[in-house]
């Protein structure tokens, strides 16, 4: 079943001359994990915001086409309605603290209070995400007195605790240590396995290749490609779109090693290892 349908979406920010999103169409099935890639200013964040309704309701501006989120048309529903279905983690962790709570613990509770989660369940969920993202030891800190990475973990935890059916993550691991990024991707994968639909804008191609079902490649607000990581990262014109393939793919491309029995290159550590070992024999 299609959880998100985007049809001919066009959008222009107020005061801007060019389209930030230009005739975008794609659909996402329930439980899919989609990676959104593309150079800076390609439109990744704008697209994410168009799915939670900040575009156009918050920003205003010129809007055309249609976005359906679990059957709700974004244009005719309020952000509040959509927020019950889709949650979003923003790009800059420093600017998404509500400012009305005194501790990390209460900050995470904020969203849960608003959507009416009963108290005992609320506490369970908060404890769970604090543990999942390893921020238990700072739970009584003021939300502003955190390191960059801890703040980003809190931002992700705050949304995941709300358990929306659709989660949008805008470069959620930019300030995380490698262990932390891996934990976030694994957490996302386990959510995906529970049937939650996920879209993530990300520059870490190795992780996108390993975890995403499909990759949406954007350039100047247009969809260039929407396919499996193997197919997208095997393109030989990626640099035209300001994107580089995962390290593993680059090595294999340089050595001319393709996946066994396929016309695509390896994109993950495992695949590259297998293909390169195969070559050596």
């Amino acid at each position: 079943m299609n959880k998100i349908v985007v049809e001919g979406l066009k959008y222009k920010y107020p005061l801007s001359e060019t389209l930030a999103l230009d005739n975008i169409s794609f659909s996402v099935k329930e439980g899919e994990f989609i990676g959104i890639i593309g150079r800076n200013s390609a439109g990744k964040s704008t697209l994410c915001q168009a799915i939670v309704g900040l575009v156009p309701h918050f920003y205003k501006g010129a809007y055309g086409g249609k976005v359906l989120v679990d059957g709700l048309e974004v244009k005719t529903h309020s952000i509040a309605d959509i927020s019950l279905k889709a949650g979003m983690v923003f790009q800059n962790p420093f600017t998404q603290v509500t400012g009305s709570k005194m501790t990390v613990y209460e900050e995470i509770a904020f969203g849960l209070e608003n959507i009416g989660v009963p108290r005992t369940e609320m506490i369970n969920r908060i404890d769970e995400v604090l543990h999942l993202f390893k921020i238990e030891h700072v739970k009584d800190h003021n939300p502003f007195d955190l390191s960059g990475g801890q703040m980003q973990r809190m931002a992700i935890a705050s949304i995941i605790a709300m358990k929306p059916e659709i989660i949008l993550l805008d470069e959620p691991t930019s300030q995380l240590d490698p262990g932390g990024s891996e934990e976030v991707f694994q957490a996302v994968q386990s959510l995906k396995n529970q049937g939650i639909t996920i879209l993530m804008a990300e520059h870490k191609m190795e992780k996108v290749a390993q975890y995403c079902d499909k990759v949406l490649l954007l350039e100047s607000g247009k969809v260039v490609d929407y396919d499996t990581p193997e197919v997208v990262f095997s393109r030989n014109d990626l640099d035209v779109f300001g994107v580089t393939a995962p390290v593993y793919t680059k090595v294999c491309q340089a050595l001319g090693v393709k996946k066994k029995g396929a016309d695509t290159y390896p994109v993950t550590l495992k695949e590259a290892e297998a293909a390169l070992k195969e070559m050596r024999r």
């Binding site: 952000i79 509040a80 927020s83 998404q96 509500t98 969203g111 608003n114 709300m162």
Partner: peptide, 11 residues
């Protein structure tokens, strides 16, 4: 304000 919106503040 955006952060509040997506956390269901106006729901």
């Amino acid at each position: 304000a955006m952060a509040l919106e997506v956390r269901g503040f106006n729901s």
